[in-house]
Amino acid sequence: MPQMAPISWLSLFLLFTLIFFLFNMMNYFTYLSPTPKSTSSDQIDTKSMTWKW
């Protein structure tokens, strides 16, 4: 049974690592997070504050 040369193991490792990183990047960048819907009741009520020292 023939043995694999070390350069073959290295190229196989690099190939699988590249595929792994590409798969993870595609999953990360294709995920669309739901955007929050803003309504008029959700707006922050801003009031001017007068400080009494």
Rank of each mutant, 00 (worst) to 15 (best):
K37L: 06
S41A: 09
T46R: 10
K52W: 00
T46M: 11
P2N: 14
L14F: 05
F29H: 03
L22H: 01
Y31E: 04
P2S: 15
Y28M: 08
F29N: 01
F20K: 03
N24Q: 10
P6W: 01
T35Y: 05
S48A: 12
T46Y: 14
L14P: 01
Q43M: 09
T35L: 09
T50F: 01
L12C: 07
L22E: 02
F21R: 01
Q3I: 13
F20M: 03
T39S: 08
L14R: 00
K47N: 04
N24S: 10
I7T: 12
K52F: 06
L14K: 03
M25C: 08
Q43N: 05
M1W: 13
Y31I: 02
I19G: 01
T46P: 00
L32C: 04
Q43A: 07
L32A: 06
D45P: 02
S40F: 03
S8Y: 10
L22V: 08
P6D: 11
S8A: 15
M25R: 09
S8Q: 15
F16V: 12
Y31K: 05
M25A: 15
L12Q: 11
M26Q: 05
L18S: 12
W53S: 10
T17L: 15
P34H: 01
I19T: 06
N27A: 11
M4P: 13
K47S: 07
S11P: 00
Q3P: 08
